[in-house]
């Protein structure tokens, strides 16, 4: 039972990472029908920006903000920087290509992904970087037989708060309604006075910012970051997006959480080496029986 609960918490932690990245994918997909392959690299970039901030500002941070304050500041700075990069990438690499259709945009997204990944490699070097251990609080607590760290609790709380905020923005605010309307029917939405460019601007700030925050959290959680890690997380997040039903934002959140939990339980009870196989097999099974994902609506075929 303890193993189960511990793995459940681990799974939820990783799942919330996937969910936060998946939201960025899903928003872009919903509006543009574009698989934004560069999104995983926004996440990596955020992780590296946070790392730089923590390493170079370490003495200043501990003196003025304390450990937690420093981590918060790192997240905010990473989010702002990467949001700017996100908007620039959209302007430079995607906007000129929209009129040409979906497939050229996919190649362009791959090109952007290669570019960001290698830019990170050129700037920070090809080796693994480690988040400074002295700056990350390391307090363990025992809850009955459960063994968890405070950091894990903070990360979980933060990601669930972020997911909640996002859910609120998308479901309850006017801007969220604009996004959903645009995702549903771009042309009608713009006839109703929704500014398409504003919506795009919004999703390309919010998505990368969320990715960057996740990147800093992953850096704190695993301590070690590398310039290629975006591929793996991006792939998992994309899987989560599809699992939940593509373009369906709450679906992407749940998809991410389910994926993380399944992965950890699979690692604990089946085999750690085969956990990814397990994840993809479940995805394939789900899609065979529900071809539009767990929460995907049945969409009538357009002719």
């Amino acid at each position: 039972m303890e193993v189960f609960l511990e793995q459940l918490i681990n799974g939820l932690t990783i799942g919330s990472f996937y969910a936060l990245i998946a939201l960025g994918y899903s928003m872009v997909y919903g509006i543009l029908k574009l698989i934004n392959f560069a999104h995983g690299d926004f996440f990596t970039l955020g992780s590296y920006v946070g790392y730089t901030f923590l390493v170079f500002g370490s003495s200043f941070i501990t003196a003025h903000f304390g450990l937690w304050g420093g981590l918060m500041a790192a997240m905010i700075i990473a989010a702002v920087c990467v949001a700017v990069v996100g908007v620039v990438v959209e302007r430079a690499a995607y906007r000129p290509i929209y009129p040409a259709g979906r497939l050229p945009a996919v190649v362009s997204a791959l090109g952007a992904s290669i570019f960001i990944q290698n830019a990170i490699m050129v700037i920070w070097g090809p080796r693994y970087q480690a988040y400074p251990a002295s700056l990350i609080p390391n307090i363990h607590i025992q809850l009955g037989g459960l063994h968890i760290t405070v950091l894990q609790i903070v990360i979980l709380t933060m990601s669930f708060m972020l997911l909640g905020i996002l859910y609120w923005i998308i479901q309850k605010t006017t801007f969220g309604a604009a996004i959903r309307a645009t995702a549903l029917d771009k042309d009608t939405a713009s006839l109703m006075g929704i500014d398409f460019n504003k919506v795009i601007f919004f999703i390309f700030t919010l998505g990368p910012a969320l990715g960057a925050i996740t990147g800093v959290m992953v850096g704190m959680y695993y301590r070690q970051i590398s310039f290629t890690m975006g591929w793996n997380y991006g792939l998992k997040a994309f899987t989560a997006t599809i699992l939940g039903g593509i373009g369906n934002l709450p679906g992407a959140m749940f998809g991410g959480l389910i994926l993380g939990v399944l992965e950890m339980l699979g690692a604990a009870y089946i085999s750690a080496a085969w956990k990814d196989v397990f994840v993809f097999l479940i995805l394939i099974m789900v899609l065979i029986f529900r071809p539009t994902g767990l929460f995907g609506e049945k969409v009538a075929e357009k002719v």
């Binding site: 945009a105 190649v107 791959l110 090109g111 992904s113 290669i114 570019f115 960001i116 290698n118």
Partner: peptide, 12 residues
Amino acid sequence: MLIFGTVMILLM
């Protein structure tokens, strides 16, 4: 590879 990525975008 930076150039490679850029050229891919430009080609498209």
